[in-house]
């Protein structure tokens, strides 16, 4: 048991800013890979929230950390399938830009 002086609102603010940077990246970047990675950034910032509440919240317990482990696993599964789709799309269309993903025709 140690005393921690990190203020909870600062951690939440960091996570909120990271989430918004991820949102901006996902909406504005052209490369499909970077869009997927921005989604990962958003998930990671949510993890910061979960861990912060689980350690610094009013009633600290480890449930938040277990949940963040599940989030990390699901994020890894999502990024694997996402990159597989990007690779298939690249072979199909010879491009990995989000702008080119607008029709199903070759």
């Amino acid at each position: 048991m140690t005393t921690v002086h990190i203020p909870l609102p600062s951690v939440l603010a960091l996570a909120a800013i990271l989430f918004c940077i991820g949102l901006y990246g996902a909406l504005s970047k052209r490369s499909l890979i970077i869009v997927l990675v921005s989604l990962e950034l958003m998930l990671s910032s949510v993890n910061i929230n979960l861990v912060a509440f689980s350690q610094l919240g009013a009633f600290p317990n480890l449930r938040g950390q277990v949940f963040s482990l599940f989030t990390i696993t699901v994020a890894a599964a999502e990024i694997a399938v996402g990159f597989a789709i990007v690779l298939a799309f690249f072979r199909f269309r010879k491009s990995a830009d989000a702008d080119d993903a607008n029709s199903q025709k070759r």
């Binding site: 921690v4 203020p7 609102p9 939440l12 909120a16 918004c20 610094l56 919240g57 600290p60």
Partner: peptide, 20 residues
């Protein structure tokens, strides 16, 4: 919006944390 909400809310924080 998020930053204002975080600022406006009163967060109860536990000061003693188990870091073992």
């Amino acid at each position: 919006i998020l930053l204002f909400t975080i600022r406006a809310t009163h967060w109860r924080q536990s000061l003693v944390v188990n870091t073992d």
